[in-house]
Amino acid sequence: MTVTDYETTVRGRAERVLSLTGINKRFGAVQALTDVALEVHAGEVVALVGDNGAGKSTLVKTIAGVYQPDSGIIEVGGQAVSISGPSAAQHLGIATVFQDLALCDNLDVVANLFLGKEHHLGPVMNEVSMEKEAWRLLRSLSAKIPSVRIPVASLSGGQRQTVAIARSLVGEPRVVMLDEPTAALGVAQTAEVLNLVERLREHGLGVILVSHNMADVQAVSDRIVVLRLGRNAAEFRTEEATTDQLVAAITGASDNVVAARAARRAAPGEGEQ
């Protein structure tokens, strides 16, 4: 997808699917989130980055309904909502893929995809319709899963991530949050998952990508939101941000190793610019 496509998608329709403003969350003596704002548009990948303890997980869990914010406004599709729990978030169209994926290894791909949302005719499950829908979902993600009737345990890490992401799409969400989707994956599998993220954007979903990996973030996101110590530290258009800018925003200092090396590299090249 090119930059111009992105412009037309986001600027053209500019449908804000999720917006958080002034979110505060406190755990005892710790102010985990202070006045945090976040916006996600349809067909946009927003990367959420930050150091350990920056408040990423707290923010993700707040959006997923695991925590309730102490104050602040959450709007879904332009309407203020309160997310009382994980199932409420799912009903509002917010799907979350947690880092541990939460798959049942003893069940096959179809069973995992539709766990808790089985198609049924009366008390009996409709396996045929589930299998058909499973193939449709996996095809729409161009997923490389050879068979949907094999236990999830026999799949590779990337394929398991694919199943987890495909499962988040079963409830027809508007926003998908991915928590460290590439953390445990190899090179090829990471590329596979990043392709999936691209595919989610093409489907017009808002995607929130939490990651520590700057390369992944820069490869796939449209916007990067940096959190530091529970506050919005910076926000970049991905194509305008450099790695050292990001690192500086994440660490809150420009005198770190990455910035220093970038400066050393930039110094002899200044004349060429």
């Binding site: 994980p86 799912q90 939460a102 049942c104 499950m125």
Partner: peptide, 24 residues
């Protein structure tokens, strides 16, 4: 093997936390 109840039983036996999170 054919009802949602049975499927949920197997799911809990396989990974209770996953079953809980998927709304069972």
């Amino acid at each position: 093997r054919r009802t949602r109840w049975g499927r949920h039983l197997f799911a809990i036996g396989g990974n209770e936390e996953a079953a809980r999170r998927s709304g069972i």
